Amino acid sequence: MEVRKASSSDVESMQKLIQQFADIGLMLPRTIKSLCEHLQCFTVAVENDKVIGVAGLHVLWKDLAEIRSLAVDPDLHGRGVGRKIVEQLLQEAEKLGIAQVLSLTYQTQFFEKLDFHVVRKESLPHKVWKDCIYCNKFYHCDEVAMVYYTHHYDGFQAAKEA
């Protein structure tokens, strides 16, 4: 399995993978147009020339980024595909000097294993919610907000020890 930045030839496969989870209400759908416009944000896992996983790192502010649209082929869950994608995105955030990486998720155990911590949604800046208005769960969101603190975070030690 190779984990790399997405290319334009990956877009249709990425969209189909994401749509599987959007169809059952686990994430927001992404259009081909949206994926193309934000292609530079996405990382894919590829095996035998097939996209088997995808996620994007979207910078929201100088100290905050979000992991979005994490989707792994359901037949390959438990093989570490998602972990490898997220680890690569966290390295990317570190290189960019981003202090905190956010995920709005239902997969809390997965993200806890990667050292993300649950935070109150109300503690997040409003800019985080700009895409949420397109979600049918906007007024009754049941996703959990989790944050990973990079070494660029001012309260790094306190956050890691809490």
Rank of each mutant, 00 (worst) to 15 (best):
D49G: 02
H152P: 05
A22K: 04
Y134D: 12
V54N: 06
F156R: 07
G97F: 09
I24V: 13
D10Q: 09
L124K: 00
L39R: 03
L76K: 14
A55S: 15
M146E: 01
L114M: 11
L17H: 09
L104D: 06
E2Y: 07
L89D: 03
T43S: 13
G155T: 06
A159S: 14
H38A: 15
K130T: 15
V81L: 07
E2G: 02
D10V: 06
H77I: 08
H58L: 12
D154K: 14
H77V: 03
L70G: 03
V86S: 04
Q91T: 04
A71K: 08
D75E: 15
E143F: 00
L104A: 13
E87I: 12
A71P: 09
M146I: 11
G78R: 09
E112P: 08
R4P: 10
D63H: 06
Q157N: 14
Q20M: 14
E66D: 13
N136P: 14
R30L: 07
C135F: 12
G56Q: 01
Q40I: 14
H77D: 02
G82A: 00
L89F: 04
V86H: 09
K62P: 08
V147G: 01
I85K: 04
I85T: 11
T31P: 07
V54T: 09
L28H: 05
F111G: 02
S7P: 11
D75F: 14
V72Q: 11
K16H: 06
T43V: 15
A6F: 10
H126A: 15
L35K: 01
Y106I: 04
V44A: 06
H58G: 03
E161F: 10
V54Q: 10
H151S: 13
C135Q: 01
R30P: 02
G78I: 02
I85Y: 00
E66S: 01
S103Q: 10
L114I: 03
G97V: 12
L104I: 09
L70Q: 01
G53F: 09
Y148N: 04
A22L: 00
Y139L: 15
L89W: 08
I18C: 05
S34N: 10
K137G: 10
S69I: 01
W129G: 03
Q109Y: 11
N48S: 10
G82Q: 05
H140I: 13
G56H: 08
L17V: 05
E66T: 01
L70M: 08
L64K: 01
Q107W: 12
V72I: 10
F156K: 05
V118P: 10
V86L: 10
E66F: 06
G25R: 07
I85Q: 06
E161T: 12
S13I: 02
E12V: 15
K33H: 13
F138A: 14
V46E: 13
S34M: 08
V86K: 10
S13M: 03
Q157R: 11
Y106T: 06
L124E: 02
V81H: 04
A99P: 05
